[in-house]
Design a binder for these strands. Structure first.
Lengths: 137, 137
DNA sequence: GGTGTATTGTTCACATATTGATTATTCACA
DNA sequence: TGTGAATAATCAATATGTGAACAATACACC
């Protein structure tokens, strides 16, 4: 069971990387972009990202550095709390997201084509339940 | 869904590492030990391990090096095929496995206590089915 | 036998992730 | 106001994972 999850995780990760390679980004970077894309004002701070993405904050620093270097997001100091940093999608970042979205959707399509919708719902429910076991320490 | 699997994978990995730390080994090393423990003669070669563990062979080399250094397994050249290497659990390795087994079982117990046996079977079935989607490229 | 090809395991260089210490700031509270 | 604890982000060191090139051996085939 543990091995099953490990394999699945690896495959998902690798497949996503393969699809994203033409755009010069990898799966973790994609995750960050998509989380910002799904946010009011396309804006988050590093610690919110760390929570949502399940990455360590040190890792977020590295990943967002790369995204900044590529001009996909922007870093600005927060006014309300000067410890915080505000990350915002740039127009360039938005354009890129919308350009790879079709390919990503096709990937997700491919990955689920053999599963009944009912199975997917069921799987998600059980995964959540299982994960709850862990969180409850 | 993808994030769910990522989180779950991470939690399983981290929890196992936490339990294993007192013995000075980590989750990947534990996996290797357990695979050998579950084998006739406590013996495998690196490529079998790589397949079973889903690690790259280069990684297996590093991990088995560490286990050799710690005296938990032994490397010997294979007679039948001189390209191959035979990895065998040492008495020391066996002793260690049997010493941490109770704690590992307790961990697994904790992780599944809230799940019905039926749910676990179902979850495993769906995960396998989902994984098949990917393998079929 | 000799030759080309596949397999096994290792090594090295690089990419990616985590840990622990460090800096700057905020907050609670006397 | 000043002091200590908590929080946000970063940095340097280390651990972990991967890909490409390599050496040694086996195997198929003529």
């Amino acid at each position: 069971m543990v091995r099953l999850i490990k394999h699945l995780h690896k495959r998902i990760h690798d497949d996503a990387n393969a699809v994203l390679r033409p755009w010069g980004i990898n799966h973790p970077e994609y995750n960050i972009l998509m989380m910002m894309y799904g946010t009011e004002g396309y804006t988050l701070n590093p610690s919110q990202l760390a929570d949502a993405a399940g990455e360590k904050s040190a890792n977020i620093t590295r990943l967002t550095n790369e995204l900044c270097d590529k001009g996909l997001i922007e870093r600005t100091a927060s006014d309300e709390d000067r410890r915080k940093i505000t990350l915002t999608l740039t127009a360039e970042g938005l354009t890129m997201i919308e350009s790879f979205l079709p390919d990503i959707c096709a990937l997700l399509e491919r990955q689920t084509v053999g599963m009944q919708a009912r199975d997917m719902v069921q799987l998600e429910r059980l995964l959540k339940k299982f994960l709850d076991q862990f969180e409850g320490d």
